[in-house]
Amino acid sequence: MSNSESILIVEDDELILKTLEFRLKKENYKISIAKNGLEAKKILLENPPKLMITDLMLPFINGRELIQIAKNECNPPIKVIVLSASSQENVILDAFKIGADDFVSKPFSPIELSIRVKRFLSV
């Protein structure tokens, strides 16, 4: 199985962004990163990845809109994993309603996340 699928990580916390990038790079994914909504939107439209891991609360353009862009404006639709600090039920339901494929709430286990990523990309 070739692991050279591309993943976009959108997260405004530098440290988490870096650790995720490092972890997923180890597994031979192509990683692009964005620290805010605007950067992410640009990458989504210009160079659409296979999977996006995004926070919900982001500067400039929030995660919900990003999910919509990933689902409606990209062809084929990009898979989305939401990584959010809030684990309230309605936030999770909300994310799924918008079109997220998976939801991981912080604090999270990176191993679990990478397994989820693997599952999405192996299909």
Partner: peptide
């Protein structure tokens, strides 16, 4: 309004 949507608050 758009900028209000990027506010960090659970609910």
């Amino acid at each position: 309004i758009r900028s209000l949507f990027s506010l960090n608050y659970p609910n």
